[in-house]
């Protein structure tokens, strides 16, 4: 049996994966859905014996904003280094934009913009000269358009005014922006961004999120790693979760959310009566609290529940529909809180 994952095999082999739950089945038949990144059994064992990435099967659909989530040390950067051909995998195969790697590195990477483990530039050169240097390294970049392309990239990340300043004098946020500008030097089909908001203030973080969405809207696939759940939740359509080198879950965010049940919570002094009404409506998993009752809402409509409570003479002080946060999902998946180093 071939280990190459196809669209149909989205995370099917991953133990504990919630993908393929409710609604997951329909995606398997989506015709012509291409994958920008596919890995199969990708593994990296460092000389020290440390297994940084363990049999990773990723499938990143073209056109998605794909969040690659995991605590520090979970193997995100190592995976990205392998994807770019910087580090040779101990085992496994991968394709970028449909091309088998690492054989296709020379042809494919020109169409891929990458930010790997933070910015790195020549301190004694200006921001603009630094971008020119990286552009010169790309054999397919057209030297006649380099100034225009650099100008546009700097404008996009808001660095146009600091273009002539030496990199040494850049603040951390400016450095991060310059690294993002370097990924936008050419028309890219895929952006690989390793923790792009590291070192940015809240305003800068918002700008990067906006930029990622804008780039994705142009049809570029964005693969973005992060250790911040909230960040992935706010900009991604898909997510994969890493934990100590292993993939714990992968799929569209909506599917992951759907895998955790929506609950309805009633604040009331009449706890017993409220519970009886909820049970009468056929809602499962009823939990009684101190001054509140909650139950799994399932396909039930909150307005029906509300009406039934009022008709049943329950004094309703508050009514809330609790949609699971991704954090709830991940706590369910991994058994612990998320922002914990692995």
């Amino acid at each position: 049996m071939s280990r190459t994952p196809t669209d149909a095999g989205l995370a099917a082999d991953v133990p504990g994966s919630r993908v393929g739950g409710p609604g997951g089945g329909s995606r398997r038949e989506v015709p012509g859905a291409e994958l920008s990144i596919v890995t199969s059994g990708l593994t990296k064992r460092f000389g020290s014996g440390q297994v940084a990435v363990d049999a990773l099967d990723l499938a990143v659909p073209s056109g998605s904003v794909f969040g690659f989530l995991g605590p520090n040390g979970s193997g995100k950067t190592t995976t990205i280094r392998m994807l770019l051909g910087l580090v040779a995998p101990t085992a496994g195969e991968w394709r970028l934009l449909g091309t088998p790697m690492p054989g296709g590195v020379g042809g494919v990477l020109s169409r891929v913009g990458a930010l790997v483990e933070g910015p790195a530039f020549y301190p004694y050169l200006s921001g603009e000269a630094n971008l020119r240097r990286y552009d010169a390294a790309d054999p397919s970049a057209d030297p006649r358009t380099v100034s225009t392309r650099i100008g546009l990239a700097l404008e996009r990340v808001g660095l146009a005014a600091a273009a002539g300043k030496r990199y040494r004098a850049y603040s951390l946020g400016m450095r991060q922006r310059l690294a993002i500008a370097a990924t936008l030097l050419g028309p890219r089909e895929l952006l690989i961004l390793d923790e792009p908001t590291n070192g940015l203030d809240p305003q800068g973080t918002r700008e990067v999120r906006g930029l990622v969405k804008e780039i994705a809207a142009e049809g570029t696939t964005v693969f973005v790693s992060s250790h911040l759940l909230a960040e992935v939740e706010q900009m991604c359509s898909h997510v994969a979760v890493m934990r100590t080198g292993r993939l714990v879950a992968q799929g569209p965010i909506a599917d992951l959310r759907a895998s955790e049940t929506v609950r309805i919570r009633v604040e009331t002094p009449d706890v017993e009566e409220a519970a009886a009404v909820l049970a009468g409506l056929g809602l499962p998993e009823i939990r009684l609290g101190d001054g509140d009752v909650s139950a799994a809402l399932g396909a039930g409509l909150p307005e029906r529940v509300c009406a039934a409570l009022v008709t049943g003479g329950v004094a309703v002080r508050g009514l809330a529909v609790q949609r699971p946060t991704l954090e709830d999902v991940f706590v369910g998946l991994t058994g612990e809180g998320f922002d914990v180093d692995g």
Partner: peptide
């Protein structure tokens, strides 16, 4: 636990190709 609505999830059919919120 607070009530989190988040962005209304993109319809599953579109989710593979589309980006939320654009």
């Amino acid at each position: 636990m607070s009530t989190v609505s988040g962005k209304e999830a993109v319809s599953t059919e579109k989710a593979t190709r589309a980006v939320p919120d654009h």
